[in-house]
Nucleic acid binder design. Structure first.
Lengths: 138, 138
DNA sequence: GGCATTGAAAAGAATCGTTATAATTTGATA
DNA sequence: TATCAAATTATAACGATTCTTTTCAATGCC
């Protein structure tokens, strides 16, 4: 089961963390800290933002999640660490995964100075819903 | 002269704004609001952050600058609006421009729903300086 | 087995970057 | 130069994130 990947990091499995893992498992919504907090606070009313941030930091350091900086002012988290790119609606900030591969090679005079570790393409535009809403504004 | 592009927006040319324009003109450092504030406050000691943010918002709405969300927790500004990509040091957050063009076409079943307006590639890794510093840590 | 010690996790408090408000000042136009 | 909209500034508020303290659970020791 997919969920098991969270269990084998040698970290304490607290109820709060299990609730967060459960919410993240298979989640494709690229949630913010606020999204995660609101999703689990019903189950654990004492949950605090600090616990969300602490847990996400631990998961990040273990390589279980990716931190996205696509939206100004807040972090977004991606539970899928496999190489992929993102399509972002500039209006509602919804994020859609793009799994296509691209040729992104750079000239050696850049790579000799800069040790490149990864790439990430942001495609930005308007999602179907926001396109329709924009059209309705006369 | 390049500087003129800031003058023809139909906005008031105050000394504070001229100082900001002067700092931005030809600047390749992708500065934050704090960087801009610190660069200009010597010339205008009464300069406030509100003026920096206001001016950058105006420039953004006029299409004279780009707002970058590459660093979590703060905005970075790019005075160069021509299509290009960025190389980001994950350690010191320095940003280098990449002017190469790439083929980033997507399948039509994505583009029919999502109205794509632009693309931005983030190459991330370690800059020369941070690579050396990392090596010195035994 | 009970108790002290340790270290990690959770909660509460504080900080940082940014935005909003309101009063004053300024630049552009007539 | 007088007018007025627009820009600047100080201050306060806000949301997102980080820091510090407190709590708790696991372990070792008597």
């Amino acid at each position: 089961m997919e969920m098991d990947k969270y269990r084998n990091f040698g970290i304490k499995l607290t109820p709060q963390r299990l609730a967060i893992f459960k919410f993240l498992n298979g989640n494709r919504s690229h949630p913010s800290a606020d999204d995660i907090f609101n999703a689990v606070k019903n189950e654990y009313p004492t949950m605090s933002f600090a616990t969300v941030y602490n847990t996400m930091d631990v998961l990040k350091s273990k390589g279980a999640i990716r931190e996205l900086t696509i939206e100004s002012g807040k972090k977004r988290y991606d539970p899928d660490c496999s190489q992929h790119h993102h399509l972002i609606c500039v209006e509602c900030k919804v994020v859609v995964d793009i799994f296509k591969e691209f040729n992104l090679s750079l000239s050696s005079d850049i790579t000799k100075d800069f040790n490149i570790k990864g790439t990430h393409i942001e495609f930005y535009g308007l999602c179907k819903r926001c396109k329709i809403l924009a059209g309705k504004k006369h």
